[in-house]
Amino acid sequence: MENQHLYNYILGIADNSLILGQRLGELCGHGPSLETDIAGTNISLDLIGQTRSFYQYAAKISGENKTEDDIAFLRLERGYKNVLLVEQPNTHFGYVMGRQYLFDVFHLLLLNELQFSKDQTLAAIAKKGIKEVSYHKRFSGDWIKRLGDGTQESTTKMQEAIDDLWPYTDELFDMTEADTAMVQEGIGVDVSKLKESYYKEVTTLLTQATLKIPQIDYFSRGGKNGVHSEHMGYLLADLQYMQRTYPNMQW
């Protein structure tokens, strides 16, 4: 493939949306209220929509007659480039909102830069995504404040979720080979430079939510290079079930 770096770069962004969208989809019908079910589904739909735009573009530049679904469903686990954060399970609603917020802040910072990409297609997808993700961040941020500064039980539960998810945040700012190559070409975003703004913003909101910022010096990483957590296999078993069981069919 000519554009191997660009291809990998697109997947690196889109896989996060796919996997997070998949996680949110699992929740539909099982949330704390009908209203939150509807909201969660909307976020999931936004993410799946973004995923499709990215994959369609990746399929086009692959030059291999691929479709968006080939990319979404027919890779080996090691081929998925999403960060560990987004594949974490829906342990409880605090985890769902925590995972969402910790990703949304990064996601918006990323898209805000990506809209200025030299690559017109990526810039356009980013522009559209900014509006969606701004809302996601507002929604998840509001919920963290409610749960963090709600009841004693909810504070404990929200803190537990933040403590467990925090170790996955640092990976967001790792630069892959594709990242570096794309930054050099003026196409990609230097995510390592987003780190400071990210932690500043997240810290402000968590503090507002009366939550403690975890003080740790060991972070988990690996997703970007295809080394995932144990959760990923089960997630993919669901995601890929139909395409694996009935290969080469149209749906």
Binding site: T41, L45, F73
Partner: peptide
């Protein structure tokens, strides 16, 4: 079946329907 929908297009449609 949301998590197992066979294509992204079907997944989005089913999500929207259940929603």
């Amino acid at each position: 079946w949301i998590s197992r929908a066979p294509s992204l297009r079907r997944k989005a449609a089913l999500l929207a329907k259940v929603q």
